[in-house]
Design a protein around this nucleic acid. Sequence first.
DNA 1: GCAAGAACGATAATGGTTTTCATATTTTGC
DNA 2: GCAAAATATGAAAACCATTATCGTTCTTGC
Lengths: 125, 125
Amino acid sequence: MALLDAGRSMGRAFSVRELHAAAQRAEPKLGLTTAYRTVERWREEGWAEDAGSRGGEAVYVLCAAQGHHHHVVCVDCGATALLEGCALEPARDSARSAGFDLLDSALAALPARCATCADGDGGRG
Amino acid sequence: MALLDAGRSMGRAFSVRELHAAAQRAEPKLGLTTAYRTVERWREEGWAEDAGSRGGEAVYVLCAAQGHHHHVVCVDCGATALLEGCALEPARDSARSAGFDLLDSALAALPARCATCADGDGGRG
DNA sequence: GCAAGAACGATAATGGTTTTCATATTTTGC
DNA sequence: GCAAAATATGAAAACCATTATCGTTCTTGC
């Protein structure tokens, strides 16, 4: 499927519109509706995770790793990295003592800034 | 200002529409545009923080505490709690070793579920 | 080949947010 | 107190990502 190839070749977080544009290079007739439907299916089946939004568009990350894990995602350029271990356990404990359960699904992609964008050049801009 | 009174009396995360509706009880002529503009100003000045979205609407929390702190916010009912200390330091260290800086501003409100909503009654629903 | 069902793509509709613009309010200078 | 400038306000329109609609096309099984 062209969308899956496009997603894997991005290597970073992407919006549905970006995914659609990339996939259209291989499959020109591919419609935006299908891109939305496919990303929604990826999310339901655990292959993609919500990574917040950038410029008013929701962005997603394709995650090879199944199971419990967390990414960091650069809010400027979409670069991602997989965090080792579970760095959120202390936060989870703290939340639990306040009577709350942290939502792993909503914290799978932690907003951050990569070294390149922090240097001020704006990343891929 | 009616909007500030409304925000403080909510005691939980709120959308702009909810804030506007609450403030209109005291100030019937208050417009939705002003509510949006005011929340934006609160964010710029550090009095309010982005708390994700609920039902397609962006939600915010009014934070009494200035300085470095984190909230947990129930994604169902909007209940909030202030976390003691900085429970995200391990995550920050892990991200730093991958070359990323976690964004405190985007992590000021951690998505969670409160005990009431976890019990299955849907909170304020 | 044929029927039933699923997937597709173009278009329209939805709805939260932003912009526009004319009016009302406050501030400033005297 | 008064006029001019600057600012804040609110109603309506514009914007745009996302979702729903609907007719068409591709599978699947026989």
